[in-house]
Amino acid sequence: MKRLAKLQPLLGWATLLLLVAGGWLIANAPMDFQQGNSVRIIYLHVPSAKMSLLMYLAATACSVMYLWKKNESMDILAEAAVPVGALFTAVTLASGSIWGKPMWGTWWAWDARLTSMLVLLILYVGLMALRSAIDNPVKSAQATAVMVLIGAVDLPIIHFSVQWWRTLHQPASLGGGGTPRIEGALLTPLLVMAVAFIGLGGYLWALRTRTVAAQRQLDALEHAEEDHDDAHP
C-alpha cells in the first residue's frame, strides 16, 4: 500500500501529460474524408474499449491469485478493478453510441461487439452488487472471485456467439490482425491516447485500491470498537 501511495501521483501526472499531448495531437490530426470530424471520437472510444477489457483481465488475474494464495491484498485489488472497468465500459458504450448516430444513422445496433460490451457492463454491475450483498467478508471475497472467473470464461463465448449471430461493426481499428488499417497521421494520436488511457486506468485502479483498503481498515476498527464496548459496558 505504501508503494502504491507513491506510485499513484506519478501515474496521475504522467497520465495528465499524455492526455494533454494526445489532445494536442487529436486537435491537429486530419479529418477522415468520409467520417469528417466525428472520427475524432475514436480517440476516446478505442482506448477505453481496450481498457474495459484490460481491467477485466486485471480483475481475473487478481481473483485467481486470491483463490490460490488467499492473500487479502489480491482481493482488494480485484474489488478495486471492477468499478474502474465498469467506468471504461460505460464510456465505450456512450462514445460508440454518439459516433454511431451520424455514422450508422442509429444510436444502437445489436451488433456483435456492442452486445458483448453491454453484457460486460451488466457483468461489472453484477459483480459490484454481489460484493455488497454478502456481509461475511471472506464469503463475499470468495464468491466475487469465482464470479469473476465465470465471467472471464463466458466473455469469449458471448463474443463469438454474438459474432456468429450478427455483425455490422467495422473491423477492429487496432490489432485486428495484420497491419493496422488506419493512416499514420491518425494512428499516432490513437497510440498516445491508448498509452494515456492505460495510465489513467492504472491511476484510477490505484486510487480505488487505496480507498477500498482504507475502508476495510475502518470497518475492522469499528468492529473492534463494538466488540470492546460489548465486553466492557
Binding site: 452486445t115 453484457v119 451488466i122 457483468l123 454491475v125 453484477g126 452488487a129 454481489l130 450483498a133 454478502i134 456481509d135 461475511n136 464469503k139 464468491a143 464470479m147 465465470i150 465471467g151 463466458d154 463465448i157 458471448i158 463469438f160 456467439s161 454474438v162
Partner: peptide
C-alpha cells in the same frame, strides 16, 4: 449467492447475461 441479500434478484442479474450465448 448463498447468504446474499436480495438473493433471487442477484441470481437473475448474474445468470441472465451469462446465458446469452
Amino acid at each position: 449467492t448463498q447468504g446474499a441479500r436480495g438473493r433471487e434478484t442477484l441470481l437473475a442479474l448474474l445468470l441472465l447475461p451469462l446465458a446469452v450465448p
